[in-house]
Design a protein around this nucleic acid. Structure first.
Length: 789
DNA sequence: CGCGGCACGGA
DNA sequence: CCCCCGTGCCGCG
């Protein structure tokens, strides 16, 4: 038979080293495709005679081939050693001691298979169904592969199972420690939703859970915080009942990767919380808050801290609450389009969906770079850590003076770092003392005419691919088609931009800090040269950051400003060999005089006109309290209308109101929220409010998982460290906020902005009058806020 | 009052 | 397990 499927996950079984490819067909069939006979191998650089003998006499040894591979600037003799068991490779690669250099000996076996067959995210498989394996897998089809090749891309409908557990609080040790009362779930397939729950004896619940996995056979397992909570609890409770947590498509058990993600053969475990964090960046990360924000609907009202009581007295409500959690989570997961995003990324990285869902960005680059290196006989080094003595110097940031600016033109370098890599042929394959391209750091690279680097070539192909996809997108006839190509081109853009990050990282196989430094130094040179040139030509450059330049045009007519923007972009692009895009016009443009902080009203392009753009300020920060963000937004709105006096008046009023502890101010508007890392990573955990709050929450019986955001209200800032009380979404807060603290923080925020205008106004217009709010300086004796109001 | 640790956002 | 730059808050000496 012959099928076409999208790759969901890839793995291998240890019993006979068969590669397992799990996928989904366009018509919704789940597939296990098996490939036998592929063996793991790795390279040893110029091994000694005794080392060769050592390998040949090892029971794992299968064969040895001679290779000549390019290693750090020269061709070297390599022995390629093929062995029996993938899991033995870490041990075998150092068989001859630490002084022998092993290459490509840390590539996961399933990746090795995909790279060698040069498979993409969708494949065509020919083969026979395998009745012998019928009982070993939960999928609709089980096929022994006789032929496999790439197929055109498509995004099939996947079956998603979202679940949530309610269990005894894990406070003290005992038999019922964490005991599960109920599992609620929601299954989604092709637009249809099916809800359900399992209760009863815990052992029965767990068994039913395994049966649902087997019979429903979901492609994706999600939930809210399942990585750090539900899955560990289930694993733990199964152990107590001496059950095996076999939810894999091959009935294998899931394993935890880096104490964070879970991986299981055949399915994608994709925590919605993680998607929320990465895509939404909300102020609070609780399911209740995110649901309300995104769906306009919150969780049911159940007291989780007294779950045992609730389970005894309100069983039906708890069950409904539990199902609803899984349902809301599923809706959020779909709303965020996590699967679509990941499918697009898997398309452009040529990796299975699971690998882009739970893998790092280095695996994206690996997937493309290793294939190319292999085909060009370039040795693939193992991942190593580089000591970070002198970090790479980063992007250039132009000083931004305080004030209000008119009709500001924004120019952007298109894909700055990828462009630098391509223009200057920056690559580990072109790095050479004989090179004629000299970076500002003094590092040399060969000219393209001598040798085009692997990375520049790859980026060029990705950029060409993206331009092609964009063109198809513009010509697409349906919205669906348009969205598809838009997704692909967006993923290509993200992928291109990850190259610099990965190559400059301190923990990657192709890392070279000289190369990372060369890229940023070329970028700094490019932008600073352009700024000088524009200034020489009489333009007033007011700001720039890494790849953007802000010019106060000095013009007043809209058409003239737009024309200038277009002319500059055209002129510079042709001259510099790097594309400069005319991005927008902002009027007015405001900053209080700090880099990376500005606000302005967009007047070009048309489709963004009227939008107030804020960067860096408290309104954009998830760790400022709502009252602060809202007040600042209001002040910016007034400034954008150039109503400075009104802004000052408003600011005074609101600070006064807060200082008086006005009862009309909702407590929620005072909540401050910050994330907390694993406790052991802190130098002094007691001195940090967020860490203290996390610990308090755990004492209260709330779930806290490292990486989570926690929320609090400051109740006494005069004490050291300041006193804070956790704020739990949905439950009453019965402490008194430190109103003076909030008034002071608010005033400082608003003052920063208003002072920025005053200095500007007094210079250009000699406008008298007090703009600055009456100041309050903490720590100074005889001066408190009270003395001013 | 200056410094370092920390979290967050910009690009 | 993605880079650095920069801001602002807090606690400490």
């Amino acid at each position: 038979m012959k099928i076409v499927m999208r790759l969901l996950t890839a793995s291998y079984r240890t019993s006979d080293v068969t590669v397992e490819l799990y996928g989904k067909t366009q018509d919704g069939k789940s597939v296990t495709a098996l490939y036998s006979g592929f063996k793991p191998y790795f390279d040893i650089v110029e091994p000694t005679e005794s080392c060769v003998i050592k390998y040949k006499s090892n029971p794992e040894f299968l064969k040895m081939e001679d290779k000549t591979l390019w290693v750090e600037g020269e061709n070297k003799k390599i022995k390629r050693i093929t062995v029996k068991s993938p899991w033995k490779v870490p041990e075998l690669r150092q068989l001859c001691g630490p002084e022998t250099v092993a290459m490509a000996a840390d590539i996961p076996f399933h990746h090795r298979f995909i790279y060698d067959f040069d498979l993409g995210s969708c494949v065509m498989i020919e083969g026979e169904e395998s009745p012998d394996d019928r009982m070993k897998y939960t999928t609709d089809l089980i096929i022994k592969i006789s032929k496999i090749e790439n197929a055109p891309d498509f995004n099939p409908d996947l079956k998603i199972l979202s679940f949530d557990i309610e269990n005894a609080i894990m406070k003290e040790d005992g038999e019922d420690y964490g005991k599960i009362f109920v599992i609620g779930y929601t299954i989604y397939k092709g637009g249809e939703i099916q809800k359900g729950y399992i209760d009863g004896e815990e052992k029965v619940i767990l068994q039913n859970f395994l049966d649902i996995m087997k019979n429903q056979d979901p492609d994706v397992i999600t939930g809210y915080n399942i990585d750090g909570y539900d899955l560990p609890v289930i694993e733990f409770r199964m152990k107590i009942h001496k059950m095996s947590f076999k939810i894999g498509r091959d009935f294998s058990t899931p394993t935890r990767i880096m104490n964070q993600f879970w991986r299981v053969h055949g399915r994608i475990i994709s925590d919605t919380w993680w998607g929320v964090k990465k895509i939404l960046h909300p102020k609070h990360e609780t399911l209740n808050y995110v649901s309300k924000e995104l769906l306009g609907e919150g969780k049911d009202n159940i007291n989780r801290l007294k779950i045992e009581e609730e389970w005894k007295n309100r069983r039906e409500e708890v069950i409904q609450y539990c199902i609803k959690d899984s349902y809301l989570t599923l809706l959020i997961y779909n709303r965020l389009r996590v699967l679509d995003r990941n499918m697009f990324m898997s398309t452009v990285t040529k990796l299975p969906l699971e690998d882009v869902t739970n893998g790092g960005t280095s695996s994206y680059v690996d997937s493309l770079l290793i294939r190319k290196a292999d085909r060009e006989n370039i040795a693939v080094p193992m991942t190593f850590r580089v000591k970070k003595s002198n970090p790479i110097e980063g992007g250039y940031v132009h000083t931004l003076g305080a004030g209000i600016y008119d009709n500001v033109i924004v120019l952007d370098f298109k894909s700055m770092y990828p462009s630098m890599i391509m223009k200057y042929n920056i690559c580990f394959t072109t790095l050479s003392p004989k090179g004629t391209i000299i970076a500002p750091t003094g590092i040399r690279f060969l000219d393209k005419s001598v040798k085009e680097g692997l990375v520049p070539r790859l980026l060029r192909q990705l950029m060409e691919e993206r331009d092609k996809v964009k063109k198809i997108m513009r010509g697409s006839s349906t919205e669906e088609e348009h969205n598809y190509y838009d997704g692909v081109q967006g993923a290509l853009k993200i992928l291109m931009n990850t190259f610099y990050g990965v190559l400059a990282s301190s923990f990657y196989r192709f890392t070279n800090l000289e190369i990372g430094g060369a890229i940023t130094s070329f970028a700094r040179e490019t932008i600073t040269n352009l700024i000088s040139r524009l200034e020489k030509e009489g333009y007033k450059v007011i700001y720039g950051d890494t790849d953007s330049i802000f010019i106060e045009s000095g013009l007043t007519k809209y058409e003239d400003i737009v024309k200038l923007g277009e002319d500059l972009s055209k002129k510079i692009s042709t001259e510099e060999g790097v594309i400069i895009e005319f991005e927008k016009v902002i009027d007015p443009f405001f900053s209080h005089g700090a880099k990376k902080r500005y606000a302005g009203k967009i007047i070009f392009p048309e489709d963004q006109a009227g939008e107030i753009l804020v960067r860096g300020y408290e309104t954009r920060r998830t760790d400022s309290f709502d009252l602060q963000s809202e007040s600042l937004t209001k002040v910016f709105d007034l400034i954008m209308e150039r109503k400075v006096d009104e802004a000052v008046e408003y600011s005074k009023e609101i600070v006064k109101k807060v200082l008086s502890g006005d009862s009309s101010i909702p407590m929620e508007k005072l909540v401050i929220s910050r994330s907390v890392k694993p406790f052991k990573s802190y130098a002094d955990e007691k001195s940090l409010a967020n860490v203290r709050v996390a610990k308090k929450l755990m004492e209260m019986g709330e779930t806290f998982i490292p990486g989570m955001k926690v929320s609090w209200i400051v109740t006494n800032s005069k004490k050291t460290p300041q006193e804070v009380e956790p704020f739990v979404d949905g439950s009453r807060f019965d402490h008194v906020p430190d109103w003076e603290y909030y008034a002071r923080r608010l005033e400082e925020t608003l003052n920063r902005v208003l002072e920025g205008i005053k200095s500007e106004i007094s210079i250009t217009e000699e406008k008298s009058g007090q703009v600055k709010l009456d100041s309050y300086e903490s720590g100074r004796k005889n001066q408190t806020l009270d003395s001013f109001f």
